[in-house]
């Protein structure tokens, strides 16, 4: 259509967003986490036993790595529903063909799968203009189907030593998965906050048209986001299968939705361009802690899922209110 030619006059003093909402949307995950940790200290002191904390850390690490990638996909106004399948398939590949001395080739194979999945997702979305949900969901079915065709539903063998080392070894007293997670977190934080690529990710998500006008190669940036996301899923798959020592159909089964939930709770906007990996990581920790506290407290398992659902709806409500005050204010 033709351009609007309405006389648009932006007053200098646009109304302020309510500071409370702004604060909530930024620090909700952290605040809730602190509250939950305090409650846990009172109700279930055993949460703080060394063994349990280690478990929490390991679980949070696997989810946390995926959340990093999912956050990047969300930032460019997308989402990735195929992470579950990539986790499981890359796990299967490295575990089942586990002859010694093949580590390098297996890793290369898993990386190849991640690259193909990420590129296909990205191309469907940027080039074929398929809605991200549909594109990545189609990939979920295909990659899941590949895994099933490859394994015939069998639980896959035993993990080779180097993979076990990756999953349950430790470095400087820290569990290996946590080390990997923290290293990746630092890399992602630096990449998003301190590189040109990171700026492009935010710009392409916040306003693709304006980004294009500002010389941002929007298509390539969005494509890269899905490749990055697929690689995160692959790494999580390796870590998880190394930790468990085997791979079955349940590997990573809830990670799809949990990773999106964690990112949203952590203040990443579903509408793109806003939020960051630090918040999303807090979201991942919060989710893991919630689930664990329920178990340690001896509550029925379903409380986990109910708690997650409630936290998510609250997070969404805060974001919705924030967007609304912004829309009113400008």
């Amino acid at each position: 259509m033709t351009t609007t030619r309405q006389l648009e006059i932006t007053g200098a003093g646009s109304r302020r967003t309510r500071p409370g909402i702004e604060w909530l949307s930024r620090y909700a995950a952290g605040t809730t986490l602190v509250v939950v940790l305090c409650i846990a200290a009172v109700v279930t002191p055993s949460f703080y036993s060394a063994g349990n904390l280690r478990t929490v850390a390991l679980q949070a690490a696997a989810l946390g790595v995926v959340v990093l990638g999912q956050t990047v996909a969300l930032l460019v106004r997308g989402l990735d529903m195929s992470v579950t399948a990539v986790i499981a398939f890359s796990g299967v590949l490295v575990v089942s063909a586990g002859a010694p001395g093949q580590a390098f080739w297996l890793l290369l194979l898993a990386a190849g799968v991640a690259a193909v999945v990420g590129l296909t997702n990205g191309l469907l979305i940027t080039w074929r203009k398929v809605p991200p949900f549909v594109a990545t969901f189609a990939m979920l079915i295909v990659v899941g189907g590949c895994r099933l065709a490859y394994t015939h539903g069998q639980t896959s063998g035993s993990a080779p030593g180097w993979l076990r080392q990756l999953g349950s070894g430790s470095l400087l007293g820290l569990p290996m998965p946590v080390v990997i997670w923290v290293v990746l977190l630092i890399i992602f934080w630096l990449a998003l906050a301190r590189t040109r690529w990171g700026r492009w990710i935010y710009a392409a998500g916040a306003n693709p048209e304006a980004a294009r006008h500002s010389g941002v190669p929007v298509g390539a940036v969005v494509l890269s986001a899905y490749v990055v996301c697929a690689f995160c899923a692959m790494i999580a798959g390796l870590v998880l299968s190394g930790y468990l020592g085997y791979v079955d159909a349940n590997l990573g089964v809830n990670v799809n939705l949990n990773s999106i939930t964690a990112a949203i709770i952590g203040g990443v906007a579903f509408s793109g361009g806003r939020g960051g990996v630090l918040g999303a990581t807090l979201g991942a920790i919060l989710l893991t802690v919630l689930v664990n506290v329920v178990v340690v407290a001896g509550l029925p398992v379903y409380w986990q899922i109910i708690a997650m659902g409630v936290v998510l709806v609250l997070a969404v409500a805060i974001q919705g209110l924030r967007d609304r005050t912004i829309a009113d204010g400008s």
């Binding site: 939705l257 579903f270 509408s271 398992v301 899922i305 997650m308 998510l312 709806v313 969404v316 919705g320």
Partner: peptide
């Protein structure tokens, strides 16, 4: 709330899954 339908119903999905388990 004017919130994204995907996210709201995703939260509902989680809450219902828990209820079903209960």
């Amino acid at each position: 709330l004017g919130a994204a339908p995907f996210i709201v119903t995703l939260g509902m999905m989680g809450a219902l899954a828990g209820t079903a388990l209960a």
